[in-house]
């Protein structure tokens, strides 16, 4: 992973600006008075002034039309949540590029998800409800699916409820930390799990809390909460369970995939997107019996061409190691 110097340097320089932009409420204290930073500051003030920015950025369409589906008929968009029906609250993170990337991944996998026939689906950290509502709409023809959504933020759970209701779909909601309370009885029952974790690298003390910071503050390398969620997902997922999770390049998704592989999971990048602000990956994990039989020997990696491809994709994008 040494050969990534150009990307590293480039991304590294732009990152302070990105962090401020992508999760919108980053502290500005470390910024200098350079022209670049002043511009960034202006931008972030615009964010603060323009609540509902995610809505305003798409004035011409009612729906977010996923970029990789732009050639599809317009009705495609009605299968996901409509931005104008997504509820909001000052303390709740609104749908943004990361949310759209995750829903794009679900749309890209729509046919597979329908064939998968999940019984229990779950979103951890549902925020505005945009993603779980979209999932419920994507799978609407499967009458046997049951949805759970959790959030640590009391306001977010309320807003999720309103968004679901506005679209005429239902999910069972819980105010809880990740999946606390469900881990015992729901173990091994979740067929589809979707997570847009707080992935922005921040000082550790910013992680958690009951306000909007919980939506983005990810601690060191943005991994603090991600690393708590992964073993919980492993416990909750059924034998055929799929996990769709969103990562920033700074989270070191390659290392995450290797770690999941040790637990017997295969991985695939479903959506990879470099926005102006950040480099996003939606990665799908599923239990793979071949991997479990092989164990975690490094030599087995070369046997799996798909895995090799994943490694090459990710190593280009990882900052660390």
């Amino acid at each position: 992973m040494e050969g990534t110097a150009t990307i590293e340097g480039d991304e590294g320089e732009r990152r302070p600006w990105k962090q401020m932009d992508d999760r919108r409420r980053r502290h500005l204290s470390h910024e200098s008075t350079s022209l670049f930073c002043s511009l960034a500051l202006l931008l972030s003030i615009r964010f603060a002034a323009a609540k509902g920015f995610a809505r305003q950025r798409q004035p011409t369409t009612e729906n977010h039309v996923p970029s990789n589906f732009t050639n599809f008929p317009q009705k495609m968009a009605s299968r996901i949540a409509q931005i104008r029906l997504v509820s909001s609250h000052p303390q709740v993170y609104e749908p943004c590029d990361d949310s759209f990337a995750l829903v794009d991944a679900l749309l890209a996998d729509r046919k597979k998800l329908l064939d998968h026939r999940p019984t229990i689906c779950m979103e951890v950290g549902s925020g505005s409800g945009y993603v779980i509502t979209s999932l419920a709409l994507i799978l609407q023809e499967i009458k046997t699916a049951y949805y759970f959504a959790t959030d640590i933020n009391l306001h977010a759970v309320r807003v999720t409820h309103e968004t679901l209701e506005a679209h005429g779909v239902h999910a069972e909601l819980l105010t809880t930390n990740i999946a606390a309370g469900l881990e015992k009885r729901l173990a091994g029952l979740v067929d589809v799990m979707v997570v847009n974790p707080p992935y922005v690298p921040t000082p550790e003390e910013e992680v958690g809390g009951d306000g909007i910071a919980a939506a983005w503050a990810g601690g060191e390398n943005g991994r603090s909460v991600i690393d708590k969620i992964l073993p919980i997902a492993d416990n909750l997922l059924s034998e055929k369970g799929w996990l769709y999770m969103l990562f920033l390049a700074a989270n070191d998704p390659l290392q995450i995939c290797l770690q999941m592989r040790e637990k017997g999971y295969a991985a695939k990048i479903i959506v990879q997107r470099a926005t102006e602000e950040e480099s996003l990956h939606v990665i799908k994990f599923w239990r793979d019996s071949d991997i479990r039989m092989e164990g975690n020997e490094a030599v087995t990696i070369a046997k799996n061409r798909g895995w090799e491809f994943l490694l090459s994709q990710l190593s280009r994008l990882s900052f660390r190691r």
Binding site: R158, H161, T176, N177, G181
Partner: peptide, 13 residues
């Protein structure tokens, strides 16, 4: 007690 308001249980510890 874990309160349930508007149909949503609060399991935060």
């Amino acid at each position: 007690r874990f309160p349930v308001n508007k149909g949503i249980p609060n399991m935060l510890l």
